Simulated scan of single mutants.
Amino acid sequence: MNFLALEPLTADLLPAIVELDRLCLGGLWTIDGYRRELESPNSDLLIVKGVGSSSEPLSKQKPGDNGQNPQSQEPLLPPPSSLLSPPSSLLSPPSLLALGCIWSIADEAHITLLGVHPDYRKQGLGQLMLYALLKAAYRRELKWATLEVRVSNQAAIDLYKKFDFQEVGTRKRYYDNQEDALILWLNGLQNPEFRQTLKVWKQQVSDRLEQAGWREKRIKGRI
Rank of each mutant, 00 (worst) to 15 (best):
D180P: 01
L159F: 14
A155V: 08
I31T: 11
L198R: 02
P70V: 12
V149I: 05
V205T: 04
L96V: 00
L58K: 12
E193F: 14
A155P: 03
W144P: 05
D176F: 02
I17C: 03
T170C: 06
K122P: 00
Q61N: 13
I31C: 10
L9K: 09
A16G: 00
Y138R: 06
K162M: 08
I223N: 02
R195F: 10
H117D: 13
L189K: 08
T146Q: 08
W29L: 01
L83T: 09
S59Y: 05
L209K: 11
P80K: 12
V205I: 11
S40Q: 07
I111G: 00
A106H: 15
D65H: 15
S89Y: 14
P78S: 02
V18Q: 02
L46I: 08
E37P: 01
L142S: 05
S89N: 01
L83N: 08
A98L: 06
A181Y: 07
E19V: 06
S54E: 09
A212D: 04
I31G: 01
L58H: 10
G115E: 01
L28K: 08
A16L: 03
E74G: 03
K60H: 15
H117L: 13
N177K: 09
Y160M: 05
A98S: 04
N187L: 06
Y34F: 15
L91S: 09
K172W: 01
M129G: 07
R195G: 05
E74W: 13
Q204K: 15
V116H: 00
S59K: 07
K122G: 03
L114T: 01
R222Y: 14
Y175E: 01
N66Q: 15
V149G: 02
A106M: 08
H110N: 10
W201S: 02
R195N: 10
Q204L: 12
L13M: 08
S92K: 12
L97A: 11
V151D: 02
Q71P: 06
I17L: 00
R218L: 13
D65N: 09
L23T: 05
G100S: 01
Q178P: 07
I223L: 13
K172C: 02
T112V: 04
W185D: 04
K60Q: 14
L184K: 01
G213T: 06
R208S: 07
L84V: 10
I157A: 02
D12M: 11
P87K: 10
E37W: 07
T197K: 15
L46R: 06
A16C: 03
M1W: 03
E193Q: 15
L91C: 04
S89A: 13
K202S: 11
K135R: 04
L84F: 13
E148Y: 08
E210N: 11
S88D: 15
C101A: 11
P94K: 00
D107R: 07
L159C: 04
F194M: 14
L133P: 03
L142F: 10
Y138V: 02
D176S: 08
M1N: 11
W201D: 08
A5R: 14
E216S: 11
E19K: 13
